[in-house]
Amino acid sequence: MFEARITQGSVLKKLVEALKELVTEGNFDVSNTGLSLQAMDSSHVCLVSLTLREDGFDHFRCDRNMAMGIHFGNLSKILKCAGNEDTITLKAEDNADQLTLMFEAPSQDRISDFDLKLMSIESEHLGIPDQDYSAEVKLPSSEYQRIVRDLTSIGDTVLISATKEGIKFSTSGDVGTANITLRHNTTPEKPEEQTFIDLKEPVALTFALRYLNNFSKATPLAPQVKLSLTKDLPIVVEYQVGELGSVRFYLAPKIDD
């Protein structure tokens, strides 16, 4: 038996909206430590890693480990039927072929349940080692969203370079070129409006803007986003989802032929 209840159901709605265009399907792996997902896009260029801790839920029970194969487009259709203020409960029997989603309005006068058909998915798990990065940058998630959106209108790829001067995003295309530099800035009173640059050594990497832009669909989940960069390795774009966990996007760099 698996059962997970979250009062702030809108978080689940936002999570699925953030993932569904990148990965069409994947396994929700549930265990007594929580719920996780690792899924690559169809071209194996980027990977989504979601970790939701058991203690971040209002109630969590998982008697045995299960992999529930989810089609995110279908899950999104069902979650769109939940109100933003609803409490959401996920339920599945052991070895079930469906996941039940129950939505409860705050006033308790409307309760609905939907069954999502589960899929059998052979998932490829990648072993991602914990490592130190050359540069870690925390910035407002809205700023990240604005940068990648603006640059996507100019070019297809972005060169991200982190130096002691700051972090610079550069692109070029038919209309011309663009450079946006952010400096370390802890002046704003609100921590979520600050930019922190932790630089161990300068690094510069090139990425496809289309994916970086797609990751910014997670903006409603967190006020800040962390970018982690190391030479010749994928970038990690990480959103902390309150006390519940995190969603991380890994994107392989483009490397000179």
């Binding site: 071209s43 260029v45 990648l126 072993g127 390795l233 994928p234 890994y250 483009k254 490397i255 000179d256």
Partner: peptide, 14 residues
């Protein structure tokens, strides 16, 4: 022109 790498180039399959 830079070439797009595959994630599997970086991380081993478990």
């Amino acid at each position: 022109t830079p070439v797009q790498n595959d994630l599997k180039e970086f991380y081993a399959l478990l």
